[in-house]
């Protein structure tokens, strides 16, 4: 197969299909839950639940850090998880080549990062992903909780980061197109995979953290 034909396929029809499935899939998963509805709550709230819900959605990622004793036992989860999410989201949106992609998808020009920061984010995301995966495989609690999905997702994301890194760094001759196509193919697969897996947790974050904040506001606790 001609490499350019493959390249055109993964960035053309396949990507379009994946994007459509992604947007339809995540909104399906979101609204499937939202439209289940909620029983009315007549208890008078002690604080402002709605304000608290918004506040928690914004600050929740930093809240776990205040648990010193949990942090000390699970530093790898907190630091690794933080670095990974920072890296993955940063790279998805603000790498120059990806910014062009987003321009085409949503029509908004995103700012781009300098290449030094791209490198730092890639290495830290890849490193923390490997560390988290090892931790997942070794920790008894995580062994109980982990299924095949988690390992598959981790492998997929690691390969995407790795091929992206190679495509950026490595002048690999004619293999460059294959490498780039592979990066795109894996990314397409990831985009397709997200709505069908636990990777769609980012949409439920808004729901479940929102509810947590809502409950906190209802009960008048600050945390």
């Amino acid at each position: 197969m001609k490499d350019v034909v493959f390249y055109d396929f993964v960035r053309g029809p396949l990507l379009k299909f994946a994007l459509f499935v992604f947007f339809a899939g995540i909104s399906y998963r979101f609204f499937r839950v939202v439209f289940l509805g909620l029983p009315a709550d007549y208890a008078k709230p002690k604080g402002n639940p709605y304000l608290m819900a918004v506040k928690k959605i914004i600050i929740k990622p930093t809240m776990g850090w205040t648990f010193n004793e949990i942090f000390s036992r699970r530093a790898i989860n907190f630091i690794g998880g933080f670095l990974f999410h920072l890296g993955f989201l940063g790279l998805t949106f603000f790498v120059p080549a990806h910014a062009l992609l987003w321009k085409e998808i949503i029509g908004i020009s995103l700012p781009v990062m300098p290449s030094l920061i791209v490198d730092i984010l890639t290495y830290s995301a890849l490193g923390s992903l490997i560390a988290l995966t090892l931790h997942r495989a070794l920790n008894p609690v995580l062994k109980l909780l982990t299924g095949k999905d988690e390992y598959f997702a981790n492998l997929l994301v690691a390969l995407i980061l790795f091929t992206g890194l190679l495509a950026n760094k490595w002048a690999g001759g004619g293999l460059y197109i294959w490498l780039l196509s592979m990066h795109m193919l894996l990314a397409d697969l990831l985009i397709l995979y997200i709505p069908f897996s636990r990777l769609s947790h980012f949409v439920y974050y808004f729901l479940s953290v929102g509810f947590m904040g809502w409950n906190a506001g209802k009960r008048g606790v600050s945390f």
Partner: peptide
């Protein structure tokens, strides 16, 4: 870029279907 373009209209269409 996406070969042939994607655009916010398709994003909205996807979200509407979902």
């Amino acid at each position: 870029v996406v070969e042939g373009g994607f655009g916010w209209k398709k994003v909205l269409a996807g979200i509407a279907v979902g």
